[in-house]
C-alpha cells in the first residue's frame, strides 16, 4: 500500500504537527484564558499580535523564527538557543508548525472558555472553592470539547504547514521533509505519481481531522 519512505514521511508529519501543537498548547490555554476573562489596557493590540501568524505569509513567520533562533539573536543571548542547533531539525519544523497554527488554537480555546456559564464559576467559588481550583474543576471540564476541537483543528493546520517550515527546517529528506514538502519536491522533480500519492494521503488526513473536529463542536 504505502512505501516505507511514504510511511516515514507520514509519521514525521504527524510527529512534527503533534509535538508543535502540544508544545504550544499551554501558551494557547493561557492566552485563551486571558482573552476570555481579563480586561486590560492594550488588549486588542495583544489580540491582534496573537492573530498575526494567521494572516502573515508563513514565510514571514518562518523568517522571524529563523531570526530568533540564529546565533547572536535575543533568544541566543538569553538562553543560548543558538548552540542547541534547533534550526534545520524536526524540532524547528515542529515549532514553525505550532506557531503558525497557534492563532487557530487560541481562538477556539477563547471561544470555549467564553461559552462556560460564569454563574457556574461563581457558584463554585461561593461554595468555598478558590479561583484556580474552580478553573480546574469547572471551567476546564466544561470547555474540554472546545479545547479538543481547537487542538485538532490546529493539528490539521500544522500538518499542512509549508512556508515557515521550509525557512527554518529546510526540506531534508528523512529529517525534516513533511508531507507538503514531499509533495512540493515530487512536483518539482516531475514525479507526478508520487505527488499524487502524497496528495491523496493529505486529503485523507484532512478529511479525518475535519470529521473529528465536526464531531467535537457539534456535541
Amino acid at each position: 500500500m504505502l512505501y516505507s519512505e511514504e510511511i516515514q514521511i507520514f509519521i514525521l508529519s504527524l510527529q512534527v504537527a503533534g509535538v508543535g501543537v502540544l508544545v504550544c498548547l499551554p501558551f494557547a490555554l493561557f492566552a485563551g484564558w486571558i482573552l476570555s476573562r481579563k480586561e486590560f489596557f492594550g488588549k486588542s493590540l495583544f489580540d491582534t499580535f496573537l492573530s498575526l501568524p494567521l494572516v502573515l505569509p508563513p514565510v514571514v513567520t518562518g523568517y522571524a523564527l529563523l531570526f530568533l533562533f540564529s546565533d547572536g539573536s535575543i533568544l541566543d543571548r538569553w538562553f543560548g538557543i543558538g548552540k542547541m542547533d534547533i534550526l534545520f531539525t524536526w524540532i524547528a519544523a515542529s515549532l514553525a508548525a505550532g506557531i503558525v497554527s497557534l492563532p487557530i488554537m487560541i481562538r477556539s480555546i477563547e471561544v470555549a472558555f467564553s461559552s462556560v456559564d460564569k454563574n457556574l464559576e461563581f457558584v463554585s467559588r461561593s461554595l468555598g472553592t478558590g479561583y484556580w481550583l474552580t478553573f480546574f474543576k469547572i471551567t476546564l471540564p466544561l470547555s474540554r470539547k472546545g479545547i479538543y476541537a481547537g487542538i485538532i483543528l490546529a493539528f490539521g493546520r500544522a500538518i499542512g504547514e509549508f512556508g515557515a517550515t521550509i525557512v527554518v527546517a529546510g526540506n531534508i529528506p528523512g529529517k525534516t521533509q513533511t508531507l507538503p514538502l514531499a509533495i512540493f519536491t515530487s512536483l518539482q522533480t516531475g514525479d507526478d505519481q508520487s505527488a499524487l500519492r502524497y496528495i491523496l494521503l493529505s486529503v485523507v488526513l484532512a478529511f479525518f481531522v475535519l470529521i473529528v473536529h465536526r464531531k467535537l463542536i457539534n456535541h
Binding site: 456559564d117 454563574n119 457556574l120 461563581f122 457558584v123 463554585s124 467559588r125 461561593s126 461554595l127 468555598g128 472553592t129 478558590g130 479561583y131 474552580t134 469547572i138 466544561l142
Partner: peptide, 18 residues
C-alpha cells in the same frame, strides 16, 4: 473573595454543574 465569605447563594436558575 466569594470563596471566603461563607455566604450560601441559591440563584433563580439553580446553576447546577452539568
Amino acid at each position: 473573595p466569594p470563596e471566603k465569605r461563607s455566604i450560601g447563594y441559591v440563584m433563580q436558575d439553580s446553576s447546577l454543574f452539568p
